[in-house]
Each structure stands twice: as C-alpha cells, then as structure tokens.
C-alpha cells in the first residue's frame, strides 16, 4: 500500500518529466503487485515456521524490497537534480 502511495505521488511528476517518471511509477506499482500476490505464500510460510518451531529468513525478497526502495529514492533525487522541468 505504501508503494502504491509512493507511485501515486510520482504521478504528479509525469507531465513534467515524461517517460522516466513513468518508469518509476511502473516499477513501484509492479513491486506492490508482486508483494500483494506473494502475500499468501509468505503467510503460509510463517504459519508453518511457527508450527515447526523453525523458520529461515528469506534474504532474497528482503534485499529486493530494500533495494527497490533505495533505487526509487536515488532515482527521485536524480529526477529533482538533473532532469529539466518541461512546462
């Protein structure tokens, strides 16, 4: 949900910065959709982990989520500092 909100605020830049910001919106939305569709699997994994008293943390998805937030922030800074505003 937070990613969708972030994508929605990026939409405000769309008329000024064009396709580049469009790709940011698409990336944030795709990440949000992926998280939503894998929610059931993660819930199942957590329940199984509690039942068996052992759970292995999923490094890949955690890193991917943090990485996507970091990349979105960096691209936001790049947009503000280096992309010219089209009126």
């Amino acid at each position: 949900m937070s990613l969708v909100v972030a994508a929605a605020t990026f939409l405000r830049w769309l008329p000024h910065h064009g396709w580049f910001v469009g790709s940011l919106v698409a990336a944030a939305t795709l990440t949000a959709i992926t998280i939503n569709f894998t929610r059931k699997r993660r819930l199942h994994r957590s329940i199984q982990g509690i039942n068996q008293e052992a759970i292995t943390p999923v490094i890949a998805s955690t890193t991917a989520l943090a990485g996507s937030v970091v990349i979105l922030s960096l691209l936001g800074i790049y947009t503000i500092l280096f992309l010219p505003l089209n009126p």
């Binding site: 937070s2 909100v5 972030a6 990026f10 405000r12 937030v69 922030s73 936001g76």
Partner: peptide
C-alpha cells in the same frame, strides 16, 4: 517509514 518519507519528498 522510508516510503512515507520518499512520498513526502516527492510531494
């Protein structure tokens, strides 16, 4: 929190 701050920065 990070995403909220990101959205705030863009806003």
């Amino acid at each position: 929190t990070s995403l909220a701050i990101l959205a705030g920065g863009v806003a």
